[in-house]
Simulated scan of single mutants.
Amino acid sequence: MISSRNLLGFPQTPNSQKRKIKHEPTIETKKHRQISLRMSLAQRAELQRKADLAGFSLNAYVLAATQHSQVAGVNNEQIRELKQLNSWLKRINSNLNMIARVCNYKKDRVDLVLVNICLSKIKAHVENFAKEYKQ
């Protein structure tokens, strides 16, 4: 009688053949939800290349990448600070443009002392902010 062998090369006994249990997916393990991602063809090709290099299907690679990595987020406080900084920089830009407009318009009648004082004040504000920002 010829016996079949299992994956490890050992002969299969009648009992081991009966013990084959098919595990049905449960609600926790069954993959029944789908998402779609928009990306360029180049991005898709790069993602597929990385999946191939890792020896995964595209689906398995994306799942592994999302489950075993952490995305750095920005909190609301940082967003608020960045908005304030952006507003402050816009005001400085506006002031510099006004000074440049006056200098270009009046050319030889510009009070250079006054322009220098204004620019010095702006420079001092920027330097103070840079010191505070570094801390």
Score class of each variant (00 low, 15 high):
Ala42Val: 11
Glu77Ile: 12
Val74Gln: 07
Ala124Val: 00
Leu114Lys: 14
Asn128Val: 01
Cys103Trp: 02
Gln135Val: 15
Tyr105Trp: 04
Gln67Val: 10
Arg91Val: 14
Cys103Phe: 03
Ile2His: 05
Glu24Gly: 00
Val102Gly: 01
Gln78Lys: 02
Asn104Met: 04
Asn116Ser: 05
Gly73Phe: 14
Thr29Ser: 10
Leu8Val: 04
Ile92Ala: 10
Ala60Gly: 15
Leu63Arg: 08
Glu28Tyr: 00
Ala42Asp: 13
Gly55His: 10
Leu85Glu: 09
Arg19Gln: 06
Val102Cys: 09
Ser120Ile: 01
Lys31Val: 06
Ala64Ser: 09
Ser69Phe: 04
Leu37Met: 11
Ser120Leu: 08
Pro14Ile: 04
Arg101Lys: 15
Ala51Phe: 11
Gln84Ala: 10
Lys106Gly: 04
Lys123Ile: 00
Ser3Asp: 00
Ala100Ser: 08
Leu53Asn: 12
Lys18Val: 04
Leu58Ser: 06
Phe129Pro: 00
Ala100Arg: 05
Gly9Met: 02
Ala124Thr: 11
Thr29Tyr: 03
Gly9Thr: 02
Lys90Gly: 10
Gln34Trp: 15
Ser87Tyr: 09
Asn97Tyr: 02
Gln70Ala: 13
Arg109Ala: 08
His125Glu: 02
Arg101Cys: 08
Gly55Pro: 04
Arg33Leu: 08
Val115Cys: 12
Glu46Asp: 08
Glu46Pro: 00
Leu47Gln: 00
Leu8Thr: 07
Ser36Gly: 14
Pro25His: 07
Ile79Lys: 05
Arg19Asn: 07
Phe10Ser: 12
Gln34Gly: 00
Ile117Leu: 08
Asn15Val: 07
Ala65Val: 11
